[in-house]
Design a protein around this nucleic acid. Structure first.
Lengths: 236, 236
DNA sequence: CGTCCCTTTGATTTATGTCAAATTCGGTGG
DNA sequence: CCACCGAATTTGACATAAATCAAAGGGACG
């Protein structure tokens, strides 16, 4: 089961491969006018909001350090965590045409985020030939992710989902997967549960199960991976 | 709870409002060259395939009559129904750039579908100023739908989901919602269950529950709505 | 040092899945 | 047109995973 916790990939505007902060690309590109003036690094405290559902789309965001959660608020006020962003992730608001944000983003811890004004991107659109194509590729990834998610939610147990969640965190943070990855669970058990469609108690219980089986060591918010292969094996 | 069973809206390329077959728009538009040659109506038998996951994207589809199911096949071969298309729905494959289909579409009954070659659309792209904008709006709708779905799946009971499903069918088919809508359930209970993340038996049991409470009358594949207000009230 | 939130763990309830059997429906071919 | 067959549906009995309720510990922070 693939259960990518975040559909937003940081793809190189030119080649489509994942790479570093797009600011570097913009600054390097001689065709782009005044990149340093438009791009700024912002630091957010824990629980601080990057953008709010319903507000106008003004920026793209690149997470340089820290972690962010992405929340959708339903009509009746119920909240659903849609995904998490980590260091190295690019946040491309899906509404590109000056419409409003479809979700709210909140920092889970002190984080540093590189912010690009959208109209700066638009202004440089012709000069960045593959930008638009990559935006489309981005939506495509979102939709594929949606399909995978449906499969994951419907057909798998709580333990399965939790394993998939952990593996996704490990893969996405490109940790050394030498059977000893170290993970920082900056979100609460309630956050994880909300994201996976589980009660926080169920998350906790299944973490304990993984501990008992010796697959991981968990101390408060720190998680150490003991046996990647066994964890991956639990997904069947 | 919104639980739109199909994220694909048939929006007018010009004004964004839902309307009839886009072929009419293309044929009416004097700038478009040889529309009648490119557009063709195709009839599909029950269980016949419109397109297959992994195959190249060649066409857009407009459902003139009948009904279609959209299936995503996971890596391990497990299948998830992503949505249903009905008369009046436009099927825009999410991969617009010559890449491959992310899902398989199969007719649920004998259906007539208007097929537009994609390269015909692309060739007329400049002549259809709002086409591209509407494609983007389309992805946006898909993603919003994804968020709503997550909310629906995670936080609602089997009965809730089934009601939301029925209401969505009623709304989308723009039936006379005068408390006596008539619905044709062309998909099987297993299909509905797969889509909603429920066992077919659970679907059947909850249909029976709705019958007992006098909200609907169900005979084989035909469903008659008795009390729209009560059905909508069940969503809280 | 105290408060509050998060986490863990246990006991219990409940909704839904699973298994099974009877019934109906739809289509096929004689 | 009718008889048959397989697939879909319904219903029941039972098993079980996860939610809920509850209480006790542990950290973080003022």
């Amino acid at each position: 089961m693939q259960l990518i916790s975040n559909p937003v990939f940081n793809t190189c505007f030119d080649c489509g491969k994942r790479k570093g902060c797009p600011a570097d690309y913009l600054i390097e590109n001689p065709a782009v006018t005044n990149p340093r003036g438009a791009v700024r690094n912002t630091s957010y405290a824990a629980n601080e909001t990057l953008f709010t559902q319903g507000s106008g789309v003004k920026n793209l965001f690149f997470v340089k350090s820290g972690s962010i959660k992405n929340i959708y608020t339903g009509e009746e006020g119920d909240q659903q965590i849609i995904g998490f962003y980590f260091s190295g992730d690019l946040i491309v608001p899906v509404s590109l045409k000056h419409s409003c944000h479809l979700s709210t983003a909140v920092a889970l811890e002190a984080s540093i985020v590189c912010v690009f004004p959208l109209n700066f991107i638009v202004a440089n659109c012709e000069k960045l030939p593959h930008l638009q194509a990559n935006m489309l590729r981005h939506s495509e990834a979102e939709i594929k992710h949606h399909h995978e998610w449906l499969l994951g939610v419907n057909h798998h147990s709580a333990l399965n989902r939790l394993c998939a969640f952990l593996l996704d965190l490990i893969y996405r943070q490109r940790l050394d997967c030498d059977n000893s990855a170290l993970l920082n669970l900056t979100m609460t058990r309630a956050d994880i549960g909300n994201y996976l469609g589980l009660a926080p108690e169920t998350v906790s219980r299944n973490f304990s199960k993984l501990k008992e089986q010796g697959l991981v060591i968990i101390q408060k918010k720190r998680l150490k991976l003991n046996d990647l292969k066994k964890l991956e094996h639990l997904l069947d």
